[in-house]
Design a protein around this nucleic acid. Structure first.
Lengths: 204, 204
DNA sequence: CTATGATTTGACCAACTGGTAAAACTCACG
DNA sequence: CGTGAGTTTTACCAGTTGGTCAAATCATAG
């Protein structure tokens, strides 16, 4: 069996600092646009020192991506089959919007990766994400068939939720430039709630 | 006055080939992720030969961006104050969706730039785009005040249109992976039309 | 054909980048 | 305090990259 060497206090601190710095840099400059030196400096280390903690630039990115995906799908997983459909969906939208506000860098890291064709992520999308999406769109389909929400295309519904919420993180610069003083997140929750309520409330 | 040397046949052909190749590479690998050699090869030229037509990698990118922005805003410019509000908006949505289908690389190029903080575009957004957005959101505001469409936040309305339509180009890999055989653009027009119709049709 | 400007190429370079090796230092623990 | 593992630094390297330059080649008007 492989012995897991328990990390020292310094290891824990430095690995965390590196991942934090890497998230900052990768999310704004992309993988190729980020240098190991930049990450090291941002983390307060020298380049060889950083490479003492991670074997390569790729390894840092990979670890970041893995952690990201795990938390990224949580809001969707939480969509409860036993809840009230409209409430469940609206709550999902708000959770997703909250993630854009709280973890914009993670959102941009993901966006960067997908826009460039998901070169380091393709498999995970095709398996984990795909499975989850199939499960949840079947659930949406059932709710529609039962007449509990308006009929529409379940997958496009999911895409629209992702796109609308992540837009506030991914296009943050543009959104803020165009909104001036007004904080985008002041009106966004209301806007999205209204949108999906009108979209999905069953016609009586 | 500066004399504009009229481009030869070869110049026209090669400059076009370079811009086409650069669009392909920049949109999938980003600025830093693309090498001049890659662009040259893709365009069927040698690297020094490419640099005979453009002074630098930056210059290629800049020319691409300028051309992009011009066409990118056309659909919004076409929003007609004298048209029937709901029809105008729905038509705008479809035009934008059509652009995602026809020019996905341009959409991804733009997305790449914005996600990374618009380092080479900041000014244009703050001036040209901002002016256009102010004008059109005032128009939307008027339509709402006149009760011709449901009241909502005009800028968030615009953001939502951009995000929903561009998502199909920017996240193309993810969308197609999750939809399997089904072509996303089969159902997308209908989905978006329904969404905005329900969202905006005035309550009688 | 030929001269002249337009185009293309091969050789090259300096800066940068990811990564390595080994020496030097630090720190916890007996 | 001493000692060995854990940590950090200095020096370095090989490959890549954006870009230059002068020579070679090509196209075409006269």
């Amino acid at each position: 069996m492989s012995k897991a060497p328990s990390p020292t206090r310094i290891q824990k601190k430095n690995r965390a600092a590196i991942l934090e710095a890497a998230l900052e840099m990768f999310s704004t400059h992309g993988f190729r646009g980020t240098t190991v030196d930049q990450i090291a400096t941002q983390a307060g280390l020298s380049k060889p020192n950083l490479l003492y903690y991670f074997p390569s630039k790729e390894a840092i990115f990979a670890e970041l991506m893995e952690a990201l995906l795990d938390t990224w799908l949580d809001p969707l997983r939480a969509l409860d089959p036993d809840g009230e459909p409209l409430d469940e969906i609206l709550a999902y939208v708000q959770r997703k919007l909250q993630m854009s506000r709280d973890f914009p860098r993670e959102s941009r890291l993901y966006a960067n990766e997908i826009v460039q064709g998901a070169p380091r992520l393709g498999d995970t999308i095709a398996t984990d994400l795909k499975a989850l999406v199939e499960e949840k769109s079947a659930l949406l389909e059932n709710w529609m068939t039962a007449g509990r929400i308006n009929r529409t295309h379940p997958k496009h519904l999911l895409f629209s939720i992702w796109s609308l919420t992540q837009h506030y993180a991914d296009f943050d610069v543009q959104v803020r430039t165009l909104m001036g003083d007004e904080d985008p997140y002041d009106a966004a929750p209301d806007y999205l709630e209204t949108l999906y309520r009108r979209m999905l409330t069953p016609r009586t």
